[in-house]
Computed example of a mutant assay.
Amino acid sequence: MDNYQKRIKMAKKAIAKAEYILIGAGAGLSAAAGITYSGNRFTEHFKPFIEKYGFTDLYSSSFYPFDTEEEKWAYWAKHISLNRYEIGATKIYEDLVQLIQDKKYFVISTNVESQFEKAGFPSENVFQIQGDYGYLQCEKGCHDKLYDNESLVTDMIEKTSDCKIPSNLVPRCPVCGGTMDVNLRKNGYFVQDESWYESDNRYKAFLQESIGKRIVYMEFGVGFNTPGIIRYPFERMTYHNEMATLIRLNRDHPEGFEETQDKTIAFTEEMQEVVTSFMQ
C-alpha cells in the first residue's frame, strides 16, 4: 500500500469515527471545482476588459481603480454573474455534502460564490465570513442592510457597451445616496448584517459544543491570505483536543505546526480525486 492509500485509509477511518465535522474552505476548493480566476476561463469571458484595461486575472482586476462607476459596474456585473449566477453546484461540493451528511457538521468559508448552499448544505450550517457575491452594500457601510443584486446584474450585463453600463443602472445607496459596492471583505467598510452575526453565533456554538469531542477538521485549499480565519484556528483546536484529527487538502501549503503533525493527514493531490477516494 503506497503512502497515498495509507493516508486515504487513515482519513476515512477518522471521518467514520468522528462525531463532529468542521469544514474550512478557501479559494483552493473553488479552484478545484473549476471556479478559476485566471487562464482560459478568464480570457474567454473577459476579452473586452483585458483588451481595454490590460487585466491579467480576476483577482488583481478586482482592485482596479476604474475612472467611472459605469466602468466599474460593467466589470463587476460580469465578475459576479460568471462566478455566482452562471455556474450551478459543482461536483466536489456535492460530494462533500454526501460525505458528511450523517455527522454533526458546520462550514466556515472565505469563498463568496455560495457553492455550499447550491450543493445542498443548509444555510444555517454555513458561515461565509468574507461576504457573498450575491449582495450589494453601501460602499461606506453607512448602514447594515444588504441588497440582492441578481436582477440588477442581469440588466447591467444586457446593457453593457464598450465596457460601460448606462448611468441610470449605477446603484446608489438608498440611505446616504452614495455609491454602492459588492459585499466583500476588502476594506474597513465591509457590512456585517444581522444574518452575518447569526452565522457567527452558530459557528461559535458549534465550536463550544464540540470541545473535547471526537472531531475532524477538514481544511480545503486554505492559504495564507487570511490564515487567522481558518488555518491557524484549525491547528490550535487540533492541538488542544486529543481526539481531534486535521485533514488538510492543499496543493501548495500542506505544512502545519510541528506540534500537530502526528494528528494531521495532509494531501497535495488533486482535491476531487481525494474527496472521491474518501467516499469509496
Rank of each mutant, 00 (worst) to 15 (best):
N111Q: 09
T276V: 06
Y93D: 10
N183Q: 10
G228E: 13
S30R: 04
I15P: 01
E44C: 04
N241W: 04
K213T: 07
F42E: 02
E198L: 10
F63L: 02
P254N: 12
P122D: 13
M243S: 14
Q192P: 01
G141L: 00
N225M: 13
E71G: 05
R41K: 12
S30N: 12
Q208V: 00
F127A: 10
R231W: 05
D155Q: 14
G26C: 09
C173D: 08
D155T: 14
V175A: 11
Y135F: 15
L146S: 07
G178A: 06
G212D: 11
I211R: 15
L29P: 05
K103P: 02
K17S: 14
F278N: 08
F116M: 13
K103M: 05
V182N: 07
L136R: 02
S61T: 02
I35F: 10
A27K: 04
F267E: 10
I21M: 07
R84C: 10
W196L: 02
M156W: 10
V216L: 10
H79Q: 08
A25D: 05
N250M: 12
K17Y: 06
T160E: 15
K263P: 00
G28P: 02
M218Y: 12
K12R: 15
D2I: 09
T264G: 04
E242T: 11
Y203G: 11
I50S: 03
S114C: 12
F121D: 10
L152K: 03
T264P: 01
I87E: 15
L96E: 05
N225I: 01
Y75D: 06
P122Y: 11
P122N: 11
E71V: 01
P227Q: 14
F116S: 13
K91M: 03
K204V: 04
S195Y: 15
I211N: 15
V107I: 14
E242L: 07
V274Q: 10
D262I: 00
D102Q: 13
